[in-house]
Design a protein around this nucleic acid. Sequence first.
DNA 1: CGAGGGCTTGAATGTTCTCAAATCAGGTGG
DNA 2: CCACCTGATTTGAGAACATTCAAGCCCTCG
Lengths: 251, 251
Amino acid sequence: MTAATPLSLFVDKLERHSPLSADARAAILALPHTVSELQKGEYLYLEGEAAPDCCIVLSGYVATAKIAGNGKRQIVAIHMRGDGVGLQNGFVARTDHDAQTLSPVKAAFVAGAAIDELVAGHPDAARAIWLETLLEASIQREWTVNLGARDARSRVAHLLCELAVKQERAATGIKRGYQIALTQEQLAEATGLTAVHINRVLRDLRKDGVIGDVRKGVPLTCDWDRMTEVADFRSEYLEIARAGSCVPAAT
Amino acid sequence: MTAATPLSLFVDKLERHSPLSADARAAILALPHTVSELQKGEYLYLEGEAAPDCCIVLSGYVATAKIAGNGKRQIVAIHMRGDGVGLQNGFVARTDHDAQTLSPVKAAFVAGAAIDELVAGHPDAARAIWLETLLEASIQREWTVNLGARDARSRVAHLLCELAVKQERAATGIKRGYQIALTQEQLAEATGLTAVHINRVLRDLRKDGVIGDVRKGVPLTCDWDRMTEVADFRSEYLEIARAGSCVPAAT
DNA sequence: CGAGGGCTTGAATGTTCTCAAATCAGGTGG
DNA sequence: CCACCTGATTTGAGAACATTCAAGCCCTCG
């Protein structure tokens, strides 16, 4: 149950929403994997690659992104400790996005095919990983709302809230004072704004006392209640997966 | 193989990316379901509902959407003939979005729990439905890019392209002249713009000869090449699922 | 100490929104 | 058949929001 292997982090995450048989748990922990340390800015895989590995983030931040034809890069998700990146890679012809580190990262790489075999042999592992991808889909929908329906101020605050809650759950930080690992440039790529405007929005949020100092290396502090209000943030979308039975009572 | 039951439409769609055993196919076709005809504007389910049915669209358009705190509604996906809506409903505690018809719709409703049982008993059906949800996730990522990285003109054109391709595949229309079932108001909700601005964008696209007349009831015509260029549209994200084996060759 | 990456600010520009009003199309009831 | 009603589309003018370009600053690291 403790971190015998780096993958136990991932198992813990899955078990938060899906019970696993001892068998399935063992199979996941037994997945062949390689742990690598990456520098900031390295790519885990690129858009269009045929069958890249997926990976479990052990520390640091990873962003998945797509590049639009006008050259703009759009970050579509941000992953941290315990998250799987590209869990679906074993099932699709080629990836539709790239994955890049936003900070120094330690990650366990697993071949997509290995995941594929795992789910073929272990229905409850399959279900757990499926639910994990459904959770990501829920987050992606909320990002769609964030970009489409909120103004810059709310949009930025919403992203900060999401990161705070995810960090809290990953047990690497605390809600009211945590490290943002993203540069303003990266915040811009995630929110569909420009870095300059991000800077102004952060300044205003600081002026209004919603957040504290935004200095590199210094944990971000904030007034959580005001922050969530500004952000229009409700965390339900981050916990959509049912903590129910593996296979519900049949008729 | 032919439309013995309405669900065969859905089976066909799944088999486009995932081979199904005769057994699994039979199990899907045997899902208990009710076919309903809905008027424009009716809700299939609401955000926050505990365990709504999912449904297979037989004709017409369905949008899934979320409401932001400022009252703005954001459409996060559009479904048409053959698409499943809320396939994940059986697996999550409560839905994070609502589903509403954009036109008169005929749909087959299936209890979430029935899907849950199905996938528990039929691994290849599970895999096929999982891939279907992964495809939707890919589309959702592209929507994120559309809202975050493209200007209004491209954004609207991109949505029109997506609808055209999906319609073509659903075999209910043709790429170069098809029916948009969405009002300008609904296009606005899907693109994160206002209805007024949608109107101006469409006017400009028409003026530039990218699209033809936009009149209700009249199929939209367009210059597909210019349209895809304006839209920055590449259809790969709509076909990300691998047409490969059900269980890949093991080691 | 110099270089570079990230942050900060101003001014001008451009895009999109808001508000308001007019038009159009289709459907209904008299 | 016409008058009316409703929902959808169209257009204009001004305001709000976000971007661009340009410059200067602040840290950190070598």
